[in-house]
Design a protein around this nucleic acid. Sequence first.
DNA 1: CCACCTCGTTTGAATGTTCAAGTGTCCTAG
DNA 2: CTAGGACACTTGAACATTCAAACGAGGTGG
Lengths: 169, 169
Amino acid sequence: MAADDVPWLTPEQLRAWLALNALTEVLPSAVDAQLKRDAGINRFEYQVMAGLSESPGRTIRMSVLATFASGSLSRLSHALTRLESHGWVVRRPSADDPRAVEAVLTDAGWAKVQETAPGHVREARRLVVDVLSPAQTAQLERICMKLLDAVGPDQADLLRSMPLRAADD
Amino acid sequence: MAADDVPWLTPEQLRAWLALNALTEVLPSAVDAQLKRDAGINRFEYQVMAGLSESPGRTIRMSVLATFASGSLSRLSHALTRLESHGWVVRRPSADDPRAVEAVLTDAGWAKVQETAPGHVREARRLVVDVLSPAQTAQLERICMKLLDAVGPDQADLLRSMPLRAADD
DNA sequence: CCACCTCGTTTGAATGTTCAAGTGTCCTAG
DNA sequence: CTAGGACACTTGAACATTCAAACGAGGTGG
């Protein structure tokens, strides 16, 4: 399944790879911890609600929302069940396609996002944004987009297609 | 708990933050999928065994190993139970400190790492290393180290203290 | 119009992770 | 020498995620 002639990594490459690995493990935990502690939700659930809150009609189809939140449809479905049980989100069959389902953020959900966002942004600043120089921030974005493209284009394309008014998460 | 005067993110900052978020969600999944498919283990377990395989005596104390693999002690303990059940790793009380426990990679574990590493490195190249220019690789490393420092110094310090001969993961 | 395929989503069980509490060892001070 | 606290780790239960199977609604070809 794996040939033996895979070129080994140079020390520079290895350092970057290991550092990135560590970061992808540690940074999500830190963000999760903040959200869990202050708002009782996790990163994925926040991402879902934040996405909805930015969307016209506070509504997004499940499959699109899953891509936006970078998770599987199954994961989203379970998460939505949790969010529904808190009254933050509601499911509704899509008008366009009867097979499809749309998630809608309720007023309570909107309020939850509003009250959660500042603490989350603060953490984003503390851990990432305020740590980097403007040049590094730009570099980071380019690098991430390149890497996202390598994993699979959907994610990156969706990000590129976003209006990106300077808002919340 | 959260003041309302948190400065909002600029569009550039927001883009970088969102891209990084997506990456930290998607990249680990991709690596996990490859390891699961080809070797039946996950990223964390691989990290643990790879760490052991590079270590003098193929032995590391639990608490150090936990930091190296970027996980909690509890997570490591559970993972080690799984690895032990496959015969890849063994626990042994530390000679120095009777409270401490050391994990030791068995010959079978060593063999497992050897046979898993090429496919994993290939994936690391496909997803990250071969995608970036040398300059970007260097930038990525600097940025990751800075961000790791912001989360907490242990992780970054451990990485900095590594010999880093150009070997496996 | 009926069998079959795809698509979008859900479900339940298996698996992995977190969280809080527990065990046993060492160190320190009174 | 002994009570208390800090360590190093383990454990079990609660929780989240993955995985494989299932479901219902549309289309498509015979």
